[in-house]
Amino acid sequence: MSGRMSRKRRRLIAVLAGLACLGGAVALVLTALNDNLTFFVAPSEIATKAPAPGRSFRIGGLVEGGSVSRTRVDGKPAASFRVTDGPGSVSVTYVGILPDLFREGQGVVAMGTLRPDGVFAASEVLAKHDETYMPKEVADALKKSGQWKPGS
């Protein structure tokens, strides 16, 4: 009886110890890769985290209200706007069709390179949705009553 119990306990301890080691190893790897696992950098992080000039990366933040101007370049739709995360902001130019959810005050992720003049030349713009879901009537009511807090 005690022999069987101890064998089970030994197996349990072996499995748990193996899992603990594995968990630790994965945590270390994820910490080491932290910067690479980040899908985009915020405008305020560009100074510290942006790669070498000419290398492409992604920036993410909110489209600044009133900053969007749509134009045409060589007959294709184009846009320029500012992306902000509060402390910092960066100008973005983009030639191409913007996604459905692209709005002022909404989240956006742009892939491209930082030009020497500090303007981010985007080759791809993705809309980032936040975690709030509500019908239009509720959104309008919230805006009207002043309880509206724009998404992050």
Binding site: V26, L30, F39, E131, T132, P135
Partner: peptide, 30 residues
């Protein structure tokens, strides 16, 4: 990693709307 990926790193995917720690950010009719 799946669960906390949206909190640990900047992801394109939105964070969780239904949490055990705070009110859901989904309208009740949805």
């Amino acid at each position: 990693v799946i669960k906390f990926s949206v909190e640990w790193w900047n992801t394109l995917h939105q964070p969780a709307s239904i949490k055990f720690t705070s009110a859901p950010t989904v309208f009740s009719g949805m």
